[in-house]
Computed example of a mutant assay.
Amino acid sequence: MSMRKPLAIFISALMASSAANAAEVYNKDSNKLDFYGKVVGLNYISNNKAEHGDKSYARFGFKGVTKISDQLSGYGQWEYNVKTNNPEAMDMGNATRLAFVGLKFADFGSFDYGRNNGVLYDVSSFTDVNPEFGGDSFTKEDNFMTGRAKGLATFRTSNFFGSIDGLSLALQYQGKNPNPHKSEDRRDGNGEGWGASTSYDLGYGIQLAGAYASSNRTDIQASDKNGQTADAWNLGMKYDNAQLYLAAMYAETRNMSHYGISNNRYAKKTQNIEIAAHYLFVDGPAEGLQPSLAYVQSVGKKLDPVSKSGDAADAAASFKGGKQDLVKYIEVGTSYFFNKNMYTYVDYKINLLKKDTYTSATGVNTDNILGLGLVYQF
């Protein structure tokens, strides 16, 4: 029996939502609860020891909706990730990815609060679609509003309050989050910030989007003398006809992108580009096969000097600062969908970073990575 268009539509929906194949576990008295998840057997093959080996994980969550009145409903979502490659006595890496609750006011819009995706990811998600590698030129969790983060209050309206078809708007506020690491560490914390994103569906599978976010930096972050503010903007476009998917994104950040293995330094400026494509075969002997291709690059400007010993004056294996590629690679992969619940993939990251003083001083990986995955999802 041919999968054809139903599979194409499902895969397209899967790219847009982590709960595209959720199982309904309760639906009664205007209350609905969906449970979703996946188990991923994943192995990396690389000359870099830190990247080589078992990377398996399991992920699950729920989405709930309750009807309060004809014009008002409530909703919530929670999602958790478990790294199954750790020994049973350890829980390193296990974490809540999403946890937010909100209210939806008919066609006017919705408001929610909690751990959610930052508005910059509204655009970055266009290129974060391939099997294993991609979408990470500047997007990182708990890094201002570039990816998943805590303390986010978000208002969203689609079709611009019900008056303009295809035009969506999001406004977001993030509260101050103290740095959870050591006092000398600049990672993960943030001051108060705000952001906005907008997208327009042109029809024929074409969508355009843009976003901007600005945040105060913490005192620890600002101790690098690069200023009190971190901000970023990005623009993106995508084409999706359920079989062919094409997307591109460009972004610039200031004092927002950290670099190096320690993630303890922020680039004064980065320029980022991501291009992604995949095609799903829905007929013939290749039915269910989806090859993919992506290009990801982040260029840092006015970077601080770094030495392997931690002493910027140490000339041996030291980076003098200035302009440098922080991320640069080509992704070549393919997935095969047995059905809507089971698929496998091979994804190859061709690392274009060179072995130089920067990668030596910061410990950034320059080796290629081959990812082999088998996924069951519901």
Rank of each mutant, 00 (worst) to 15 (best):
R4Q: 07
R4E: 11
L7Q: 01
I9W: 00
F10Q: 10
M15L: 15
A16G: 08
S18Y: 00
S18H: 01
A19T: 08
A22W: 02
Y26C: 00
Y26T: 00
N31P: 01
K32S: 03
K32G: 01
K32Q: 05
D34K: 06
Y36Q: 00
G37R: 11
V40G: 07
G41L: 11
L42A: 05
Y44K: 00
Y44P: 04
I45D: 11
R59I: 11
D70G: 07
G76E: 03
K83G: 02
N85A: 10
N86S: 14
N86R: 13
E88T: 15
M92A: 06
A95E: 14
T96H: 00
R97F: 12
R97D: 12
L98N: 08
L103H: 04
A106E: 09
A106P: 09
G109E: 13
N116T: 12
V119T: 14
Y121C: 14
F126V: 11
N130S: 13
E132M: 10
F133D: 01
G135S: 10
E141A: 13
D142G: 07
M145V: 12
R148M: 08
A149V: 00
G151E: 13
G151W: 05
L152V: 13
T157Y: 09
N159Q: 11
F160Y: 12
D165Y: 03
A170F: 06
Q174S: 14
Q174P: 03
P180G: 14
H181F: 09
S183L: 15
D185Y: 09
D188R: 10
G191A: 12
G193R: 15
W194G: 06
A196F: 10
S197F: 11
A209C: 06
G210L: 15
A213W: 11
S215A: 05
R217N: 00
D219I: 00
I220P: 10
K225N: 11
T229A: 07
T229Y: 06
N234P: 09
A242L: 07
Q243G: 08
L246F: 04
M249R: 05
M249C: 04
M249W: 01
Y250V: 01
A251R: 04
A251P: 00
N255G: 03
G260T: 05
N263H: 13
R265A: 11
A267W: 09
Q271G: 01
H278W: 03
G284T: 02
Q290D: 01
L293C: 05
G300F: 03
L303R: 04
D304W: 04
P305Q: 14
P305S: 09
V306K: 08
S307C: 08
G310P: 06
G310A: 07
D311C: 08
D314K: 02
A315E: 05
A315R: 05
S318Q: 06
K323L: 15
Q324L: 00
G333S: 12
T334N: 05
F338D: 04
K340M: 06
Y343P: 11
Y345S: 13
V346S: 09
V346A: 15
D347H: 01
K354L: 04
K355S: 14
T357K: 09
Y358F: 08
Y358D: 06
Y358A: 03
N365T: 10
V375G: 13
